[in-house]
Computed example of a mutant assay.
Amino acid sequence: MGIPENIAWQDPTERREEVRVPIQREGTVRVADDGDSLPILISNLHREGCRIDGSVELSVNQTVMIGIPGIGLREARVKWKNDGAYGACFLRPLPAGSVGSALADNVHALAGAPSPVSHAQVRIMPIASRGESVEEKWSPRARFALFVAMTFVGGTMMVSLADLLLS
């Protein structure tokens, strides 16, 4: 079974089914037979693999563990290398929704634990879909406080209105 002729590819040289998403997040790499985690930059990510950059020395066909913020550790095989950049293919594709999890700014260091990477160097840009503007969500605590305040104000207004109507 061949590739259908009517498929429009993003790039004529690109034949991956999954779109690569630029994430520019710091992660870690651990060589399978070594216990040390080294900091890397994950340049792009898709369900089947990623591109990593860093001052690590890896070999083509080497098996590594890649730590991805929002996803966790994934076993991968180095497929190519070029001047400090590496392409890695996951041994098992990421579950659906994982790439979106890696984009979210939901990973924070534990209190008192040393962080192997500096979060100050990573800048995450929120993604807007269909030309919509991106707005920050309120924290659950702020939303609850607003709900309580609006309930109180609404209840006070109802009592006042009832007072006016009954007098």
Rank of each mutant, 00 (worst) to 15 (best):
V153P: 09
A113Y: 01
S101L: 13
I124H: 07
L146A: 13
A111M: 06
A102P: 00
M157A: 12
A102L: 01
G155N: 14
F144Y: 05
P114A: 07
N106V: 11
V153M: 14
A113T: 02
G155V: 14
I124A: 13
H108E: 10
E132V: 01
W138A: 06
V107W: 10
V148L: 12
W138N: 05
R141E: 10
S115E: 01
P114T: 04
A162M: 14
V134S: 07
E136L: 11
I127R: 08
G112C: 04
M150W: 10
Q121V: 15
A104R: 09
N106Y: 03
V122Q: 08
G112W: 00
S118E: 10
A109S: 15
P140Y: 01
S115Q: 06
A142W: 05
T151S: 13
M125N: 14
V117C: 11
S160G: 15
V148F: 11
T151W: 08
F144A: 10
P126D: 04
F152R: 02
D105A: 12
P126T: 01
Q121L: 15
P116I: 10
L110C: 14
A145K: 08
H119N: 13
D105T: 03
E132F: 06
V148C: 12
G155Q: 04
N106S: 11
G131Q: 04
F147T: 04
V153T: 12
G155P: 04
R123T: 05
S115G: 04
H119M: 12
P126R: 03
A113Q: 00
R123P: 00
R143W: 06
L110R: 15
H119V: 03
G155K: 12
R123L: 09
A149I: 06
T151A: 15
A109Y: 02
L103C: 06
A104C: 10
T156P: 03
T156C: 15
V117H: 06
S160Y: 14
A109P: 08
I124S: 09
F144S: 04
E132H: 09
A145I: 08
V134A: 12
F144P: 00
P114R: 07
N106T: 12
P126K: 02
M125R: 08
S139A: 11
S101V: 03
V117F: 05
M125C: 11
V107G: 03
G155Y: 11
T156A: 14
I124M: 05
M150Y: 04
A109I: 12
A102I: 01
S139K: 09
T156R: 08
A111Y: 00
M125V: 13
A109L: 11
P114D: 09
S101G: 07
S115L: 02
G155S: 13
V159T: 08
A145S: 08
S133A: 02
T151Y: 13
L161C: 06
